[in-house]
Amino acid sequence: MEPKEVLDELKTILVARLKFDPRRAAETTEATALPKGVEGSIGLDSLDFIELSIAIEERFGITMDESEDLAPHFASFATLSRFIAGKLPGA
């Protein structure tokens, strides 16, 4: 799966699991930041990150190791898509 396809899946998760307005989800690009408080971000808070992590693990069948610092991977859709794509089988 290419990072671009991963990004599309993440947009689906935004709507289905994080209850984003579909239009707002469609506007996101690779450059869009995730965490609340960052300029131009979609404003995810700590509970959103837990829900997002569960959804990612269940959608892509991967495990994200809590003992590693995951914050840099969750900075933007670009970093997150690359991180997920790198964990998929065949990557």
Binding site: S53, I54, A55, E57
Partner: peptide, 11 residues
């Protein structure tokens, strides 16, 4: 339960 049950281990 004798086998793994599907779902994120965060649950």
């Amino acid at each position: 339960i004798p086998e793994p049950v599907a779902g994120s281990m965060r649950r």
